[in-house]
Design a protein around this nucleic acid. Structure first.
Length: 153
DNA sequence: GCCAACGTTGGC
DNA sequence: GCCAACGTTGGC
């Protein structure tokens, strides 16, 4: 199964918020970047693993894992004029943005901070480092394995 | 809060 | 289709 890394600002929506979802899954919406959108829409699929990354906080870190439970569908927030994610150029017929649903899997005993990722030889080629502003990023199998090792207690 | 990097918008 | 201006991301 492919693995992804999704970024979120914990002040907005943290892995704890995901774990606390009473419906058993969280709606991953609000992605407003075309490259990230294309990954979500075209490649992210039910069953894929998702590493959850907390950004804009101290320390920025990979904090846990989730699983995709619903393939991409139109992000409802683009149609909501009251939402900060509203997009006047999007229509029901032609949605511009997509969301997926994910289910909390686990919180790592030891989060993996960005500084540590930068120091780890096996993780130097992570797209996370190459394209620091992308919020949905594929993770290579070997990288995933290295990350799992580093997040064990 | 600063600022570098980079994505988006819009006039021409 | 170029490119300047502007906005956003995100680490520090």
């Amino acid at each position: 199964m492919p693995t992804w890394l999704f970024k979120t600002e914990p002040d907005e929506y943290s892995i704890d918020d995901l774990a606390a979802e009473t419906q058993g899954y969280g709606v991953w919406d609000g992605i407003r970047n075309y490259q990230a959108r294309n990954f979500l829409r075209d490649q992210v699929a039910t069953g894929d693993r998702v590493l959850i990354y907390h950004s804009s906080c101290t320390p920025a870190a990979i904090v846990g894992e989730a699983e995709v439970v619903r393939d991409a569908y139109a992000d409802q927030s683009q149609f909501d004029s009251a939402s900060k994610y509203f997009d006047s150029k999007a229509s029901m017929e032609k949605p511009r943005w997509f969301s997926v649903d994910i289910r909390f899997a686990e919180k790592f005993p030891q989060p993996l901070p960005l500084a540590k990722i930068k120091q780890t030889a096996a993780l130097q080629k992570m797209l996370l480092l190459q394209q620091p502003r992308l919020s949905v990023v594929p993770v290579a199998e070997a990288e995933y394995g290295a990350i799992v090792e580093l997040t064990k207690a």
